[in-house]
């Protein structure tokens, strides 16, 4: 199998992700690691809470991975995403892509994270000192 997709309630393992996509035909691995930032628009964020519509999220992630395989000469794609509460500095998402040559790895990795943010039914809530907000819910 050339695609590994997982939603996880526990800490994501960066080394596992790299090891999983590593393959002898590949000359490069591109890894995107999303991390929880301590502020949004100048306001301190204490933590994030992620929620997923799991069945549909997996299905949409599979579609994105398949599209990347169709668009670029990619050997292996891994997408892991967290759910639950994450503290500043923790990792909500890891995308790893292995290809023979680097251009495809950069392009595919960027396509996957950009599309994930647009279509995959996962939501994050920013929790502040004085309240909380579902990101992007309102104009």
């Amino acid at each position: 199998m050339d695609i590994e997709i997982k939603l996880s309630v526990t800490t994501l393992d960066v080394q596992h992700c790299i090891d999983w996509v590593m393959s002898p035909e590949c000359g490069g691995i591109d890894v995107f690691i999303g991390t929880v930032r301590n502020a949004t628009k100048g306001k301190a964020v204490l933590r994030l809470a992620f929620e997923a519509y799991e069945k549909m999220a997996i299905k949409e992630l599979e579609k994105i991975a398949q599209q990347a395989l169709d668009k670029w000469p990619v050997q292996k794609i891994l997408i892991h995403h967290r759910t639950g509460v994450l503290q500043v500095g923790e990792i909500p998402v890891i995308i790893a892509v292995a290809t023979a040559h680097r251009d495809a790895a950069f392009d595919a990795c960027r396509y996957i994270i950009d599309t994930l943010k647009q279509t995959v039914p996962i939501w994050k809530k920013e929790i502040f000192e004085d309240g909380e907000v579902w990101v992007a819910a309102h104009p």
């Binding site: 992620f50 943010k117 579902w134 990101v135 819910a137």
Partner: peptide, 24 residues
């Protein structure tokens, strides 16, 4: 699957409301 406004809803369908997504 994302549905269009004209799609028909059936009794046993699994229906979900998807507010703006914000994963990643």
């Amino acid at each position: 699957e994302y549905a269009l406004d004209g799609d028909t809803v059936h009794e046993r369908d699994e229906i979900a409301i998807i507010p703006p997504v914000s994963g990643g």
